[in-house]
Amino acid sequence: MNANPVTQHFIKRVNATNSVGIDDQLAVEEPLEIRIAYYIDGGKTEKAISVTMRTPGNDEELAVGFLFTEGIIQHAAQIEKVTLPVFRENTVVVTLDSSFEPKLGSLERNFYTTSSCGVCGKASVDAIKTASNYLHFDKPISIDRHILFKLEKQIAQRQDIFETTGGLHASSIFDQNGDFLLLREDVGRHNALDKLIGATLTAGLVPLSQHILLLSGRASFELIQKASMAGIQIVAAIGAPSSLAVQLAEESGITLIGFLKKDKFNVYSGFDRIQEI
């Protein structure tokens, strides 16, 4: 396993008049097998849940976030430990607490997941509408629109690997004042968000109902579904949302913002959470 998220590759850089040979920086993409170990009928069993193409780093957070956003676990307390087996490269094993038996029957996902499409392996549209425990917001959030204008600059300053390779997505979380809290990067946009949610779940911050999620690219259906699982009320994306993402945001009561720049943005749902619009 290449633990470094960046690797070098010799290339020829070409323009209209000449070419030059240089070492270029590439974002690493490798498979990660996510497995769970759990206790059933007095014995311990282990099961492969998914293989996802990801950028190495924060693999434990990725596995925890994946299990949470898929609805397999609901709380960090249901996890006994997370390990990276020494003799099994590109594998992470999440051992569940002995008192908790996961419900795996509803997990209709094929074994392989690409870095670009987290739901490509889903068996049906109904199967990807994972039920969230945080659909009803007990404490509403309302923010000044000018807070959103300063988010893009903050995420750009902290995308270290993207700055080097130009090849990664980022998910970042801010408080309701627009102050930066945490960022995770990955070659897959859904992996970046799973890493972020896994980190916040482990830190005891979920539900993230008083936070703002910023996506470095477009807002897809699955990213809104994952945000809903974490109780996020406001999702902002640098790129465009899909029609299904907007539909799910409306159904989930999420404020969805797209095309976020330093001086403008579009609001697609949940208008009441943004002041003065």
Rank of each mutant, 00 (worst) to 15 (best):
M1K: 12
A3Q: 08
N4D: 15
T7W: 00
Q8K: 09
Q8L: 08
I11Q: 02
K12Q: 04
N15P: 01
T17W: 06
S19P: 02
V20H: 04
L26N: 03
R35K: 15
A37S: 15
Y38F: 15
Y39Q: 15
A48R: 14
A48K: 13
S50G: 02
S50D: 08
V51R: 14
P56I: 04
P56M: 03
E60S: 13
F68M: 00
A77M: 03
A77W: 02
A77F: 07
Q78R: 05
K81Y: 07
T83Y: 01
P85R: 01
P85K: 03
R88T: 13
N90A: 06
T91K: 08
L96D: 14
S98L: 11
T113G: 00
G118V: 07
V119K: 06
C120M: 08
C120G: 08
A123I: 10
S124V: 07
D126E: 14
T130H: 09
T130Y: 05
A131V: 14
S132K: 08
S132F: 01
N133M: 06
L135F: 07
F137I: 12
F137C: 14
K139C: 04
D144E: 14
H146R: 15
I147S: 07
L148R: 06
D160G: 12
D160H: 11
T164C: 02
G166Q: 01
L168K: 12
H169W: 14
A170I: 03
S171N: 09
Q176R: 09
G178Q: 12
R189V: 00
H190P: 03
H190A: 02
A192E: 05
L193H: 05
G198H: 00
L201V: 10
L201Y: 13
V206T: 10
Q210S: 14
Q210V: 12
H211S: 12
H211F: 12
L213C: 02
L213Q: 00
L214A: 11
L214E: 13
L215N: 04
R218Q: 07
F221R: 11
I224K: 02
K226P: 02
S228I: 03
G231M: 13
Q233I: 08
V235I: 12
A240M: 07
A240T: 11
P241Q: 06
V246R: 13
Q247R: 13
L248M: 11
A249S: 15
E250R: 15
I254C: 11
L256Q: 02
G258C: 07
F265A: 08
V267D: 06
S269I: 03
Q275I: 11
